[in-house]
């Protein structure tokens, strides 16, 4: 097991490479997921108020 983690002496290069790949992809998912939740909450808050006109918008 220790031999596996040692990666033939190149652990200091291989594990950071896998870590960066996983980290960047995870960050993209978390950031996007938070953005979705935030936008949906804002939409719900705006939609709940009374006297809302239809959401149709003419081309600005």
């Amino acid at each position: 097991m220790a031999e596996f983690f040692d990666m033939g002496g190149y652990a200091a290069y291989i594990w950071p490479a896998y870590g960066i790949a996983a980290g960047v992809i995870a960050c993209l998912f978390i950031w996007s997921w938070r953005g979705l939740k935030k936008a949906e909450q804002a939409e719900a808050a705006l939609g709940k108020r009374p006297r809302r006109r239809s959401a149709r918008v003419e081309r600005a």
């Binding site: 992809i25 993209l28 998912f29 996007s32 997921w33 953005g35 979705l36 936008a39 949906e40 804002a42 939409e43 705006l46 939609g47 108020r49 006297r51 809302r52 006109r53 239809s54 959401a55 149709r56 918008v57 600005a60």
Partner: peptide, 29 residues
């Protein structure tokens, strides 16, 4: 592709929020 679908949902939701805000400001609120 999973990230792309997720981000497109984010963009669409943000666009709906913008449309709602615009409609609201036109109503004078």
């Amino acid at each position: 592709l999973l990230l792309l679908l997720l981000r497109m949902r984010v963009e669409l939701a943000e666009r709906r929020v913008m449309a709602l805000q615009l409609a609201r400001s036109r109503d004078g609120e």
